[in-house]
Design a protein around this nucleic acid. Structure first.
Lengths: 113, 113
DNA sequence: GCAACAGGCAACCATTGGGTTGCATTTAAC
DNA sequence: GTTAAATGCAACCCAATGGTTGCCTGTTGC
């Protein structure tokens, strides 16, 4: 899907980076990755903000497609969406690669001149 | 430096992601990677916002360590800082890896039980 | 059935963020 | 030495964000 149009990929990736661009949310993501699925109460225990704040952050992450929640009894369990993480990582790969290519072109041009 | 403390690395990475988490800024980064160093005027030509907005975005990226500017004559030329990009990429790698490890543990536990 | 637990909803507040406009300043060009 | 280009600076505006508190609704567990 659209390996020829890095632009589109970049535009799609911006919201993911925005979601990761908050210390609390990044810690939530890390926590969900290392500890596996967890309820809001469990996630709040390790955070230094209110349960409501954690809930909001989880919804932001959900909006970016980074996590999804499911009801289990009286608690809501949140789980990571690893595909989105990969997507972001690949986006950075693309950019870095383009930079490397630019460097290579520059080097070649200098050698040529 | 602190391979034992992924937390610290994550906290440091949050601002970088925040800086990348804006479509205009992400386009600026991509532009600087593909096209090499460029002046503010040149960067504004491709953007759909004011020169001042571009300037602000560049300063945000600079604050995150993603770019740096240098004066050349009457224009200021901005250049990418590829190390920071790599840093962000490695951060995502760490998280993904932790997730994979968690999956593996889970699989092992299920097989055991 | 009732108390305690887990979460949803809504209002509210302060701060940041992205954007603009207007004007001042430096540098190149001729 | 003027003029035009490239940028810096500052004020201002509105919307979005991160956070809180208070209260209501389900769900356990006994």
């Amino acid at each position: 899907m659209s390996a020829r149009r890095p632009e589109a990929k970049l535009n799609a990736a911006a919201p993911v980076f925005a979601a990761l661009g908050d210390a609390t949310r990044l810690r939530l993501v890390a926590r969900l990755c290392t500890g596996g699925p967890a309820s809001i109460a469990a996630l709040t225990a390790n955070a230094d903000v209110t349960r409501q704040a954690v809930t909001k952050h989880l919804h932001v992450l959900e909006g970016a497609g980074l996590v999804h929640g499911l009801r289990r009894g009286r608690e809501q369990v949140w789980e990571i969406e690893p595909a989105k993480l990969d997507e972001a990582r690949r986006c950075l790969d693309i950019i870095s690669t383009q930079w490397d290519a630019a460097l290579e072109r520059l080097r070649a041009a200098v050698e040529d001149g």
